[in-house]
Nucleic acid binder design. Structure first.
Lengths: 143, 143
DNA sequence: TATTGTTATACTCTATAACTATA
DNA sequence: TATAGTTATAGAGTATAACAATA
C-alpha cells in the first residue's frame, strides 16, 4: 500500500471539492442576487423550508453569531419572507417560521438552482450519478 | 427510459452538491478566519499562487467588480501579502503579484484546508475516490 | 446565575457612480 | 472615445461587547 498515492488522491479530491464548491457558490450567489437576496439569505431560506427553529438553533446550524442572525432575520422579515413568533414554552425564545411568500420564493429559487446547475450535472456520466450522490452524502453524514 | 428517474437523480445530485459546497465553504471560511482573512481573500490567495494577473483580469476571474478588487487588494497589500506593480506594456494597467509572505501563508492555508477536510474525504470509499475526482473534474471542465 | 435575543459598534465585502490617467 | 484603475458612497454580512428579559 503506497501512502504517497493516497496522499496524492486526497489532495486531488480536496482540490476538486474546493473548485466545485466555488463554482456552485458562484451559481448560488448569482441566483440569490437575481432574486434580490444574499447567499446567506438563500441558504437560510433553504434551511427554513422544512424547519421551525429558534433563533439560537438557526444561528448554531448556520455557524453564525446570534447577533448576525438577528439582523439577517430582521431583513428577511421586513421583506415578508419569514416571521418571528414567541416560543410557547420558553418566554425568552423566538421561533422563526417561513411565510407563504417565503415558501413560494424558496420553490422558485430551488428550481432556478437546478436549472443553473444542469449544465454541470449533465456532464456527469449517468451511470456514475448514483455513485456520486452516494459518496457525497456519506461524506457529509457525520453521525 | 423513465424521465422521472433522471429528474429525481438530478435533484438529488444538485442537493448533494449544494450541501457539500456549504460545508466546504464553512470549513474554508473558518480556516480563513483563523488566519485573519476573509473567504474572498483566501480565494484570491489561492488564485494568485500561480498567476500574475492585472486587476481587471483578477476581478473578471473572481466574478467581482473592479472597485471591489481595489479594496480587496489594498487590504491584502497592507498586510504584506501582495504587491501592486505597474504593468510594463500598458501604462494604465497594474499587475498583482504575491509576496514571499503571501506565498508562505498560502502554503500554510492549503495544508490547513487539507487537514480540515480530511475527516470528510476519509469517509469516501478509497476505491471510489478516483471516480469522484474524475467526475467532479469533468463536471467543472467547460471547454 | 445562566440563557435568549437584541442593540451598538466596527470592519469587510459588494456594487454603482463619478473620476483620473492612459490608449 | 474607450479602457484600467481608484475613490466616494451605500447597503449587507459578520463578530464582539453590553444590555434587558426570562429561566
Amino acid at each position: 500500500m503506497p501512502p504517497e498515492s493516497n496522499q496524492a488522491d486526497d489532495m486531488a479530491l480536496v482540490d476538486a471539492l474546493a473548485s466545485c464548491s466555488f463554482v456552485v457558490m458562484g451559481v448560488l450567489t448569482r441566483i440569490a442576487a437575481e432574486n434580490d437576496m444574499s447567499l446567506t439569505q438563500l441558504r437560510a431560506l433553504g434551511i427554513l423550508r422544512d424547519r421551525r427553529p429558534r433563533m439560537a438553533q438557526l444561528a448554531d446550524f448556520m455557524g453564525l453569531d446570534r447577533s448576525t442572525m438577528s439582523g439577517l432575520i430582521e431583513r428577511a422579515e421586513g421583506r415578508g419572507l419569514v416571521r418571528r413568533v414567541p416560543n410557547a414554552d420558553d418566554g425568552r425564545a423566538v421561533d422563526v417560521v417561513m411565510t407563504a411568500a417565503g415558501l413560494e420564493l424558496a420553490d422558485v429559487v430551488a428550481a432556478d438552482v437546478r436549472g443553473a446547475l444542469a449544465p454541470f450535472t449533465e456532464r456527469i456520466d449517468p451511470s456514475k450519478r448514483a455513485v456520486l450522490v452516494e459518496e457525497l452524502t456519506r461524506m457529509l453524514a457525520l453521525e
